[in-house]
Design a protein around this nucleic acid. Structure first.
Lengths: 99, 99
DNA sequence: TGCCTTGTTCGATTATTGTCGAACAATATG
DNA sequence: CATATTGTTCGACAATAATCGAACAAGGCA
């Protein structure tokens, strides 16, 4: 498997990031990643099928919210916190702290 | 015309607010309101028809982002900044400051 | 009253997104 | 090599949301 494309922070688009985070499943993924730091897709699948999760990860990745590192057969995801903070200061923090 | 229903800040939902702001037209409305404080719908209509704008205002109103005050035949809109800040500290500021 | 202004509502259409099974690809492991 | 594990891709369908014209409602004013 080839490595993923991750957008450059300078090209992060606010509306893309907001759209990515405006979904309950994806917000759950992001909150989980904040707690555990890094996680592969499988550990994040609740009741949803793999293909749905794969889709959500792609949306999050394409918007710049998370990065995916491939290690063997596993895809390890983590938040792009610093990069997001640099481009949109305070945004991710506000969202993660929100009720 | 009867007054609008505005949700109570305690019931603001993060995903609703993010969805409301994850649209270019609505983000534009919000940015404009930040500049001018209060504005009626007509002054915010660019090229879009009235019915589309009315829809966007409703989405913003229902999520708690703005309030609409009726004065005669005009509907004056303004951001619910304090209420949003109370429920989601830093969120609106981060979004308004974003590039 | 008649008319103009402001904005909503309705209904239809289109566009965008989410969902999910099935097939596939890549890697590890027996 | 055969098989299990991890996740993607494809395609079809469903659900949600945006767009916009036309008709309507309410208020102000001549």
């Amino acid at each position: 498997m080839a490595a993923y494309d991750h957008p450059d922070p300078a090209t992060f688009e606010l509306t893309l990031v907001l759209r990515a985070l405006a979904d309950p499943a994806r917000l759950e993924i992001v909150r989980h990643l904040e707690r555990v730091g890094e996680a592969n897709c499988a550990t994040l699948i609740g009741t949803r099928p793999k293909s749905s999760m794969s889709h959500h990860f792609q949306v999050l990745r394409d918007s710049g919210v998370l990065r995916t590192r491939i290690e063997g057969v596993q895809h390890r995801n983590s938040l792009r916190r610093e990069e997001l903070d640099m481009r949109f200061p305070g945004l991710l923090t506000a969202i993660l702290n929100a009720p």
